[in-house]
Write a protein that binds this DNA or RNA. Structure first.
Lengths: 223, 223, 223, 223
DNA sequence: GATGAATGAGTATTCATTCAT
DNA sequence: GATGAATGAATACTCATTCAT
């Protein structure tokens, strides 16, 4: 089942060209993960052992490289999400989903910046981000059906929780890279229905369309 | 006998100068809130309708402008924190504290950056930030003493929660500016001790010194 | 015997204006002597306890202030030169002249820069510098007449010697402010005729007109 | 096995790059010689007919450009110094040394600034400058041993003499570029011991450490 | 007349992007 | 196709000079 994106690449790249493309992606993955999206393309190129020109031959501009890189990354995450769905216990599935997502972000400064809205998130990223909706919805519905998750939780709450956790991870990455797990636990405990005292959630959740709008905005705070 | 700071301001600025100073502060407040502290002083000046030189006449450098802008803001927050402490019920005090803090940061990207990362935060900001520690500690101790808050909560968890909430607020500010309250509720429910099922917090909290280190880093990923 | 410059000042300044003028000159003398001509006029004004505007009301621009300052200073030096001329022994007179000149320069970074051709030396300075010619000539002629000074010395050599000495003074001012005296001695010993071994001076001296040209050049190396 | 510096230059620059590099060096040589090291890199670039970015591609910063330009120059001077040492007659060697040095500096304001003050002189320049000490010392000792040079002369006097002479050269460069030879002769005559009338040098010479201090100062009056 | 506020061109340096080799 | 050279706009900050108060 090919989609538009793949159709664009009708002619496969020459072997060496493809190898360079991969090298660049690998180098970019490494430096962006480690030092964030500010790293200059010159440095990415150096890291990849190619010239900047080569980077620009393979990717229209920095944004394009970032998209190519993270679209795949996010796609992988979507797979992870599916894996979480496969867990037999609905509650565990939900928790595990959040953990995997946040964990993925926690180890990748670039990915985090992208979710936190760097100026580099273009349409393809937005598109990729959408893929999470379905699994997120399913995870929540199932955990609510068993009475484990609170009833007022909504699909759109998931990206927010991940956002929050990855922010915490970002903040403390050098000092205590695992600290986000504390806050995951806090949040997760807050998600439980099995409690005499759950406070009703005060604001209405975002509608999916609103979530869409947010994701399409061009870097509100241009982190 | 007043202190140095006040002594410096003996002579009030000329009317026009004061007007420009205000214009600059207003412009800076706006652009920093909207787009973060990266905005160049040239742009602040343009926004204020003055030359850069004027900005530099009033403020020694970017950091100084930022301090002028946010020191008061942060001091006000500290007052807010004290006010929260005054609430009779310890649990309500804690919740109200988080709410006030997150609410204040919501919608001001600059303030958030300043509380979180230090690229532009000088001593006065650092000093202002420190004021929060004591009240945070007291709030938690008190809410734990009454058995309302979970025992494994630590002072250093507070800034993280505020960070997370204000990020959520930031994220959705144009679409649903109040959405962060949902996540405050989630977190707060996770903070309760009165629950049969609290999961032990997995990672150790940050030590105050570690928190200090983080705050002194000149921006984790150069946000 | 009034000259053109004084004629320009037909109307004497109001008392307070004159006082300010003097304050500015005094302040400028101090800071320029100590830290050189780079000092900003803002700082001069602050030092004088007046506003910059006042400086600009009294002096057309920085160059003008410098001229006013150093024309007088150089005039004073010319008086010093006359004093040297008064010494009974022609040789002593010459030596003392060089010493006084170099000594004056050694203590004044601004004066030195001016002699070494800062971009601020305008026509009035050039004019003032001319005043030295006559006394210089006389000093040399007399010391040659008594057979004390070597015969191939010329008037135009004098400014060069002073230039060289003040450069040495400049160079070492913080470490050994009196070091220039060593080189004065060396030069002076080189000036003596009473020696079996005087090497003939290899290059022709500058003609007075050439000296003029040099002095009028607009800061060859814009020190 | 060659050292790091050479290892870096394994791959020669592309033809066009090399051409531009040369253009930049030529332009820099010209403007620095003429107007001193203050000239901005923008101007150097303009003079070379390239963009500033190109200058920064070839040279890490201004200091680096200056080093590239003058290290060789100064090394050549050191060779010259050695050559002077090779002269059979110690007195001639000393004189010839001074002559060569002063001659080299004459007409290059940048070189002079570099030898004298350090605003832009990095380690390599500092290193290059040190090379002069030994030959200077040897020259003096030898000329004193034969009784030709006065006994109170010290190694540290040499840089001063060169400084003075090159300043004179600078001063008159357009009108009479060789005039400094007059003053060299004067000084040299003052250096002789074979004289009935040598005045004792009044101030103590600079200690080598003091000389070091001077050279490390970032420009006495910010020339 | 005095003040000090406002201006903007100028300085060193960085980096995304284009283009000659 | 690959390379890396060239470009220039952008950034924080300074200072001589002008002008409103």
């Amino acid at each position: 089942m090919t989609d538009v994106d793949e159709a664009e690449q009708v002619r496969p790249l020459r072997r060496d060209a493809e190898r360079n493309r991969q090298r660049i992606l690998a180098a970019a993955a490494e430096v962006f993960a480690q030092r964030g999206l500010q790293v200059s393309l010159d440095e990415v190129a150096r890291h990849a052992g190619v010239g900047v020109g080569t980077v620009y031959r393979r990717f229209a501009d920095k944004e394009d490289l970032i998209q190519a890189l993270f679209t795949k990354r996010i796609d992988d995450l979507a797979v992870l999400a599916e894996a979480a769905l496969a867990e037999p216990d609905p509650w565990q599935a939900l928790v595990s989903y959040l953990e995997r997502m946040a964990g993925a972000m926690a180890g990748d400064a670039g990915l985090r910046q992208l979710m936190l809205f760097s100026p580099y998130a273009g349409e393809r990223i937005a598109y990729a981000r959408q893929k999470f909706s379905p699994s997120g919805r399913a995870l929540i519905k199932r955990a609510q059906a068993t009475g484990q998750a609170r009833a007022d939780l909504e699909t759109t709450d998931i990206p927010f929780m991940i956002l929050m956790l990855s922010t915490a991870a970002d903040y403390a990455q050098d000092v205590s890279p695992g600290i986000w797990r504390r806050y995951l636990t806090l949040l997760v405990d807050g998600l439980r229905a099995s409690r005499d005292c759950a406070t009703p959630l005060p604001a209405p959740p975002l509608l999916p369309e609103e979530m869409q709008m947010i994701m399409n905005q061009r870097s509100p705070q241009q982190h």
